[in-house]
Design a protein around this nucleic acid. Structure first.
Length: 161
DNA sequence: GCCAACGTTGGC
DNA sequence: GCCAACGTTGGC
């Protein structure tokens, strides 16, 4: 674990129809590999800024409702995403090679269930979250940084202290 | 280096 | 299903 002051926070999006927070909670070791990221900004966050122990807001996108469903953490730092090497995989990318991987992934572990699901409406209604990157208009990044203040507020909205 | 076309994301 | 927003691609 990094020192508390080094800990960073993230919001990571997943579509609950394919993999939701409950799926993570029920997974072996409550952990899964976050594969399939094919966006350079998101990759760079994983490669350059994510550390084991960082906090993760597990966000359900395209769900009913959308919002933060649970608390997770980074369980393994960035490593090559093998789905990019498999021609049969929907996330296959010929330009990513095992000797020079383009795409990376991290492992994420569920840590706490939220007593209350934090809907997108609830996030938008909170003045302290007005600047949160994931809420900015037109944002499509699947991984975005969250400040320590935003992290605390979202936890509080979810019924945690 | 510009920029139009295209594909994808994600809220509604 | 629609569509705004945005990243990527590729012709020039």
């Amino acid at each position: 674990m990094p020192a508390p002051t080094d800990r960073r926070y993230w919001l990571m999006k997943s579509e609950p129809e394919s993999f939701g927070f409950d799926d993570l909670w029920n997974a072996p070791d409550r952990t899964t590999g976050w594969d399939g990221v094919r966006n350079y900004q998101a990759r760079n966050f994983m490669r350059d800024d994510m550390h084991v122990g960082d906090g993760v807001l597990f966000y359900h996108s395209s769900g009913t409702p959308t919002g933060v469903a649970g608390i997770a953490e980074v369980a393994r730092a960035a490593y090559p995403d093998p789905t990019a090497f498999d021609p049969r995989d929907p996330h296959y990318d010929a330009k990513s090679r095992p000797d020079a991987p383009t795409w990376l992934m991290v492992d994420v572990r569920a840590v706490e269930k939220l007593p209350q699901f934090v809907t997108l409406d609830a996030l938008r209604a909170e003045p302290g979250l007005a600047e949160m990157q994931a809420l900015r208009r037109g944002n499509r990044l699947s991984i975005t940084p969250v400040t320590a203040a935003e992290w605390k507020l979202v936890r509080k909205l979810g019924g945690l202290r």
